[in-house]
Nucleic acid binder design. Sequence first.
DNA 1: CCAGACGTTGTT
DNA 2: GTCTGG
DNA 3: CCAGACGTTGTT
DNA 4: GTCTGG
Length: 227
Amino acid sequence: MCGRFVLVADPNQMVLEFGLSGVPVVPANYNVAPTQVLPVILNEAPDTVSQARWGLMPSWAKDLSMSAKMINARSETVDEKPAFRAAFKRRRCVIPASGFYEWQTRDDGKKYPMYIHLTDREVFGFAGLWEVWHSPERDDLRTCTILTTAANAFMKPIHERMPVILSRENYGDWLAAEDVPAPVLKPLLRGYDPDKMTAHEVSRNVNRAGFSSPDMIAPLPSLPRLL
DNA sequence: CCAGACGTTGTT
DNA sequence: GTCTGG
DNA sequence: CCAGACGTTGTT
DNA sequence: GTCTGG
């Protein structure tokens, strides 16, 4: 799963990684949490950075409470589920990230946050879906979700699921404007190359949504300091 | 026919 | 335990 | 994902 | 909106 991530990227690197036409303004966020509005690249406008709230609202949803449940979509079933299949056909997006958190459950039954990122580059893209929700009161709201897949060999010891990290050469296919058959899209939704990933334990202050600090991705000292 | 769900993860 | 909010 | 609430009545 | 369950 992926319920928390980090986006701290040099805007010029964003331009290069995603082929943007202008330099985006992307505030550093060391603790992106569900329900927050975040920078996304929609297939509707693939050379610019747009904004969307994390938690996909299907078009028929009555109120925002639905949104918090829809932060992830299983790539194995995303073309079938009523909540996601329409977006899978026509509203795909790439969600820029520089790393993500997973909580590892250890033998003591407690959960320890780990920070996972790529060793060879600063920023990458999650595979995502988006929708427009026509709110009764406010303006139309764009919402999004992150696809997940089975853990690759690197992630297995940490967690059984992981977010779909797109390879750079697949951004174009994923962001095609038209309908693309599911058999063409689904092979893009696989685990990333395990040899290109790295991870370390981080402080539990990441647990608290709404706080963001560079400390959050700092490696935790391996032993508690006694004296 | 109408009513109610529509999701994922993890744990059992 | 389960739901809501961030 | 985690944290925090989870309720009503009456009074300020 | 569309599917499932009663």
